[in-house]
Design a protein around this nucleic acid. Structure first.
Lengths: 216, 216
DNA sequence: CGAAGATTTAGGCGATCGGTTAAGGCGATC
DNA sequence: GATCGCCTTAACCGATCGCCTAAATCTTCG
C-alpha cells in the first residue's frame, strides 16, 4: 500500500472518530505511520485530504449501488438487492458512513454530500413512483419511504457502538448482519404489500381534495 | 435567561455543529455573549460543560417520553404517541439530537449515552414482546423493530440539512413534520398489522420451537 | 456603611493546531 | 559520475486551543 492510500485510510478513521475539526493532521500522520509533512505534500491542505476521503467513499458506494440496480428481477427483488448492497457496503466501510453522517447533519461540506446524494435519491423516487403510482402522494409517498429505509439502514451502522452495548452482541457480525438484512427485507415486503391495495382507511378529512394527476 | 443557561444553549449549538473537539470555548463564549473565563467558572472544564448539555438533554427527553408512555389507549395508540413525542422533541431540539448522534457513533462519551439509552430500549422491547409474543424472535423481532423506528425518526432530524436540499422544502416546517408523523404512524400500523397474523411465509426451518408463555 | 461572598473581567500560560521551509535520500536517465 | 524529478524528513511559523490568575465589579446582609 503506497503512502497516499495509507494516509487516506488513516484519515477516514480519524475523521469518523472525531469529525473534521477534531481530527488532527498529526494524529492522521501517526496512525498511518508517515511523516506529518507528507500529508501536505500529497494533499495540499487538510480540507483537500478530507475531499479525497469523501470522493473515494462516494465513488465506491455509487459503484456498488449501481451494480445492484442493474440486476434483473421483480421490483421487490431489485429493491431488496439495493438494500443488501447498501448494508454490505456500510458493514465494510462503517468509518466512512460516519463521515457522511457528520457532514449531512450540518458540516461545512454539506454541499458536497448534497451533490452526490440528490441524484441517487431522485432516481430512487422515480423508480418507486413509476412502479407504484400510489406513492406519488399520501402517507406512503416515495420520498417518505426512501427516507425511512435510508434511516433504518444507516442508523444501524452509525450507532453500532450504542447497539452493541444495547443488544449484547456485535452488530457487525455475520449473524447479526444477516438478521438485519432479513428484517429489512420483511419491512420492504410488508410495505410494498400495502402499495398493491387501495389505501385501506382514508381517515384524511379532506373531502374536497380529490384532484388526480394521471401522468403529468 | 441567566449566564449558565445561555452558555448551555450556545454550547449545544456549537457541539452539534462541530463536535466536541471542533467546538471551542471561545466560540461558545462569543455566541452566548459572555466572557470566555465564565465558562470555566460555571463549568470547571469543557468536558463538564459537555456533560451539562448532555444530561440536560436526556433529562428533558426522558421526561417527554415517559409522559407519553403513561397515556391510556390501545398498544398502537400508545406506541404512536411515543413516536409523536420523540418527533416533537427532536423537532424542537435538533441540535441536541446531533450531539447524541456524534457520541453514539463512537464518541469518547459513549458510556454516558449507553447508560441513558439502554433502560429506555429495554423497556420498549419488554412492552412490545409483552403485547406481541411473535416479536420474541424472527424477522420482526422487537429489537429490530425498535432499531428501525428509532432510525426512521432520528435520521430525519439529524440529516435535516441534507433532506432540505433533497426535497426542496423545510423538513422542520409544521406541514413537513405532520406528513412525517403521518407516515411513521402508517408504517407502525402496517407493521403491527403483520403481528396480528401468523407469519405468512414460515421460511424459518425451526419446526420444534413452538413454546408459548401466555402471560408470565 | 462596610465586610463577605458571588460573579465577571482582561490578560496571559504552555500546548497543540494547520501549514511552510530548506535540506536531504533515491532511483532513472544521460 | 552528474543531473534531474519525485518522495521524505526535521525544524519551525503564527494562530488558536483549553485553562488559569489576579483584580474588578456586583450582591447580600449585619
Amino acid at each position: 500500500m503506497n503512502t497516499r492510500e495509507r494516509i487516506l485510510r488513516a484519515a477516514g478513521e480519524c475523521f469518523a472518530e472525531s469529525g473534521f475539526d477534531g481530527a488532527s493532521t498529526r494524529q492522521i500522520a501517526e496512525r498511518s505511520g508517515v511523516n506529518k509533512a507528507l500529508i501536505h505534500y500529497h494533499f495540499k491542505t487538510k480540507e483537500e485530504l478530507f475531499f479525497g476521503v469523501f470522493d473515494d467513499y462516494y465513488r465506491r458506494l455509487i459503484g456498488a449501488l449501481v451494480d445492484s440496480l442493474e440486476l434483473e428481477g421483480t421490483f421487490e427483488q431489485r429493491f431488496a438487492a439495493l438494500i443488501d448492497s447498501y448494508v454490505a457496503f456500510l458493514a465494510a466501510n462503517r468509518d466512512l458512513g460516519c463521515v457522511i453522517q457528520w457532514e449531512a447533519s450540518g458540516g461545512k461540506n454539506i454541499e458536497r454530500v448534497v451533490a452526490q446524494m440528490v441524484p441517487l435519491f431522485q432516481r430512487g423516487i422515480e423508480l418507486i413512483e413509476e412502479r407504484h403510482p400510489l406513492t406519488k402522494e399520501g402517507d406512503l409517498a416515495a420520498s417518505q419511504l426512501l427516507l425511512s429505509f435510508y434511516g433504518m439502514i444507516v442508523t444501524y451502522f452509525v450507532h453500532t457502538p450504542l447497539f452493541e452495548r444495547l443488544l449484547g452482541i456485535d452488530p457487525l457480525s455475520d449473524d447479526a448482519l444477516q438478521r438485519r438484512k432479513t428484517h429489512l427485507r420483511r419491512m420492504l415486503s410488508i410495505t410494498l404489500q400495502q402499495l398493491e391495495l387501495r389505501p385501506p382507511e382514508p381517515r384524511a378529512p379532506s373531502p374536497s381534495g380529490t384532484e388526480e394527476e394521471p401522468n403529468r
